[in-house]
Design a binder for these strands. Sequence first.
DNA 1: GTCTATATTATGATAGAC
DNA 2: GTCTATCATAATATAGAC
Lengths: 191, 191
Amino acid sequence: MSDRTESRGRIIASARRLFYEAGYENTSYADLAAAAGVPKGNFYYHFKSKDELLGAVLEARHADVAAALDTWAAQARTPQEGLRRFVRMVMSEEEALVAYGCPVGSLLTELGKHRDDLREAARAVMDLYVEWLTARFTELGHPARHAEVLAKRLLARAQGAIVMAHAYGDQALLRRELKDIEAWLSEQAPT
Amino acid sequence: MSDRTESRGRIIASARRLFYEAGYENTSYADLAAAAGVPKGNFYYHFKSKDELLGAVLEARHADVAAALDTWAAQARTPQEGLRRFVRMVMSEEEALVAYGCPVGSLLTELGKHRDDLREAARAVMDLYVEWLTARFTELGHPARHAEVLAKRLLARAQGAIVMAHAYGDQALLRRELKDIEAWLSEQAPT
DNA sequence: GTCTATATTATGATAGAC
DNA sequence: GTCTATCATAATATAGAC
């Protein structure tokens, strides 16, 4: 919980960035050591393995996302506002998303091919969004079952837009699709 | 062009399957040798490097997709039928897509983080779909610019559905989203 | 807790016999 | 064209000094 240790936090922060920007498999301890300014050997004091490091990275992201969603929930005065807030968050990350893809989605794609345990941890982050969005759709009056369908549909549309924008390096594509998603949201969430 | 060589074809076929199922970086020559029944050393007679092998794999997929699209174009009597055919093709691959993701999309996600040249080859496969679908939307009367937007939107929605279905191992999710995409298509393509 | 070795293994790639 | 043996390297991981 508490990060009394100096380097542990720096390692996690660097790993979080590099795993995202370069991919998990493609990031070596040498890369991490250079980025974090911590020698390779030190890594194994804090984490038994590279997998465990990814676990810690996912834990940190999980905590951040959970905190962000709490803030949104407190700020948004209507469910419509909350849903809109989600799309705006994606928009605000456009540049990174076009350059590197979705940090959760691309990791899920990479891990999906193997490593079932880590995949579960990554999915837990996605689940935070699913549950939060489901709650907003429920507040709008949608039955629980359908609210979850809509939440996953919203996430699927965002994921797809990011995949295509990333593939083509096309920021305009991402913005355009997000606008279309907002329009679709308005239909599901009459004011 | 001609595959007079016995093993070259087997290598490409195995690589195509393993790169898809396990990911490119995560597939080693040892894995490929075991799958293809060809010793490691032989690989370098046919391909100078692993990257070149992936290039050949992408070339093979490119040819297959191009051939499939030609067939569809010949069979579909209306643009509506062509667009519907695309969605049905995705449906027919549901099991593999849930298990391993989209062969083009997940590769683009993996390569997007590095390796610009190979990324271009993978994007060329996606472009086949973009151009073919754009032609169908154009036939429907949409202006060229908008037709391409719709084509990429259709692909984005398919990609997003696959990412989520793959992440959750949920085939029902994929089918449900594809049905919704078909409904959306009907709106864009009035009969 | 931190860092410097170093071990161990697995990888992509070669050389050369057949 | 095919295969065996092997190389060089880079990766994850350890041992142990400080």
